Amino acid sequence: MDVKTETKTQVNTTQKLTMVQAVNDALKTMLESDKTTMLLGEDIGKNGGVFRATEGLQEQFGEDRVVDTPLSESGIVGTSVGLAVNGFKPVAEMQFMGFIYPAFDQLMTHVSRIRAKTMGHYSVPLVVRAPYGAGIRAPEIHSDSAEAIFTHMPGIKVVCPSTPYDAKGLLIASIEDPDPVIFMEPMRSYRAQREEVPEGKYTLEIGKGKRVQEGTDVTVIAWGAMLPVAQQAVKQAEQQGMSCEVLDLKTLYPLDRDLIAESVQKTGRAVIVHEAQSTGGLGQDIMSVIHDTSFLYLRAPIERVTGFDVPVPFFALEDHHLPTPKRVLASIEKAVHF
């Protein structure tokens, strides 16, 4: 059973898009349909952003709605907070997730707490778009996977699509959500594939994952750029006669606990794949969900395949740092043959 929930309006035909094109299409769709939507970020207007995710939008919608900002992440997020509590739906772009740290104070002390501090009188319909991850030969501060920082901020949702279709539907849903969302975009996946994406407006439910394929021997859990890595390993495992179920979480907070529990209770084994470092990584929270809901169903210890506990290294060691299909396959074999 696929737990994906979809709401469609004004959808007629489809077009084959890359993920970065799907992001652009989602932003365009919201700028057209909702006059309160605004985009803010460094070089997002005239230059169309580092990855051209906002290309052509300032020309179409004007400088008042697609705003080139000074080089100040705390200023971008701080301004967006003010806009959000005054009736706008700002979408703030961080050029890279590693650049988000100067805005940490704004996110932790204001963005995540305003609904609680005002007893629900104010919400913060703010989306922070954050390209993340290694594998594109960028310097280390550009390549961080810092999702666990934000999943530990109550009041903020964290979304991470793996495909162009999901990127558009989840980004529109995030912009329409009354609460703040960190929208993680895997840079490695921006132009890695094309997929049929509906024209017009549609949304996918935040907080719901997707069963990518059915299996009976082991559950492999991934998201973002690690989903294709996991799928490559699963193909190799299947050649050895192992039946693998693959889950794409899509939302990292709140986690789809029901999907995780249902799958692990069926297979009795789990392999979690993420490129962030092991210590304090989201994999530990997923392990807690499995232990809380499915401990007595486990037939082997839970396996994790992650980045190492170091800053993302420079080019020569970058591929060694990232999880590979070979490492994922070894963990699948270890779990199945325990």
Rank of each mutant, 00 (worst) to 15 (best):
H121K: 15
G78Q: 05
T9K: 14
M1K: 09
K46H: 14
Q60Y: 11
D68F: 04
G87W: 05
P325N: 06
F315W: 13
S143C: 04
V234E: 01
E147H: 00
R137H: 14
Y190L: 13
E42M: 07
L282R: 03
T219V: 02
E55S: 14
A230N: 00
M184A: 11
E333G: 01
G283Q: 01
S243L: 02
H337T: 13
V310C: 14
N24C: 10
P125F: 03
T36V: 06
T151H: 08
D34P: 11
T69G: 03
A134C: 07
G307W: 07
D68L: 04
V20G: 08
P325G: 06
M153H: 09
P186I: 03
V20Y: 02
Y190F: 15
D292Y: 10
V158Q: 06
A167K: 00
V312D: 04
D25M: 13
Q60D: 14
G120L: 13
S123F: 03
T203V: 09
Q10M: 15
V128A: 01
G48F: 12
D217M: 02
K89Q: 08
G283N: 08
G45N: 01
Q95F: 09
F183A: 01
R191I: 11
T5C: 11
I290C: 07
A148M: 06
V328I: 13
E93W: 09
V273T: 09
I136A: 15
P178S: 15
T203H: 03
L259K: 02
D166V: 01
E275R: 01
I76H: 05
E59C: 10
K210L: 09
T69D: 03
V273E: 01
G49S: 08
P313Q: 06
D2Y: 10
V234D: 02
T7R: 07
V310P: 14
V271E: 02
I114E: 02
D144R: 09
E93P: 09
Q60G: 12
L107N: 07
D43Y: 10
Y297K: 00
F88E: 01
